[in-house]
Amino acid sequence: MKKNITIIALAALLGSSVAIAAQQSAQVQADIDAFQNHFKAKFPEMDLDDFSKGPYSMNEDKLMQFENIMEMPPFEDSLDKGEQLWNTAFKNGKTYSSCFNGPVEKIRTQFPRWNAEAGKVENLEAMINKCRTDNGEKKIGWKKGKMAFISAYLTTAATGEEINVIVPEGDEKALAAYNKGKKFFYSKRGQLNLSCANCHIDSVGKKIRGDILSPALGQITHFPVWRGKWMRKKGNGFGTIQRRYGGCNKQVRAKPFKVHKDEYTNLEFFHTVMSNGMEISGTEYRQ
């Protein structure tokens, strides 16, 4: 990981013409190191990518159950639908791929990204809907259904690709968006007065009633996820990362924010940057 950064920095110094994203903000890199070192120190027996298994990374029995389910995951059909949707032409004859750079396995890790021109963070789901409206199609729902199928297809196609979200050095606006996401993550909210960090940093591996709390590190490597709980609710079990944010806000009796507004999108920016260097693990099952 460190190596990658030095290579990028070196390339930047040499004024290399290779298309390399801007250099990571030094402040953000220091945050990433501190964040990841906290988990490494607390769980020295775990490798960086082990953290992506969420609650299952904290309990061997649960990890085995999880691995059994993943041998025949309940969401294969939905991934196929996602692939179909991805390849189906709009009325104008173009497909989604015309809106994105690179082959299908290289798309997931480009997001969320800072759009300097627009002065805001763009995430994958927002770009999928933008692609639709740019091509004269209607937007689709944000949190589940078709949107989640397409997004899950791209996540699964990107299995093994490395997360490398950049908050460009010297871009004050980008840093401000990142800092808003960071503040959101550490702020206590709701009637129960709990922050994301209280549960997913301070209490990792502990039980809250019957649930084991997952580490914040690696929480985004496998979204959208398929959850038994969402399956039982109505729908087909899939949800995007921002759907999950809403659920975690509700648990503390806070009013969830609207998805795809600044609050959750900046949170997603911060939350994803913290897992830089980890591999996308593909869409996964959750309880």
């Binding site: 209490s203 502990k206 039980k207 809250i208 009633r209 019957g210």
Partner: peptide
């Protein structure tokens, strides 16, 4: 009660099922 104190979310209490360990 989950909609009341829900102290079991975080504390073992004699007589309570599925206690948390926070």
């Amino acid at each position: 009660g989950r909609k009341a104190g829900n102290c079991l979310a975080c504390h073992m209490i004699p007589g309570g099922n599925l206690p948390g360990t926070i």
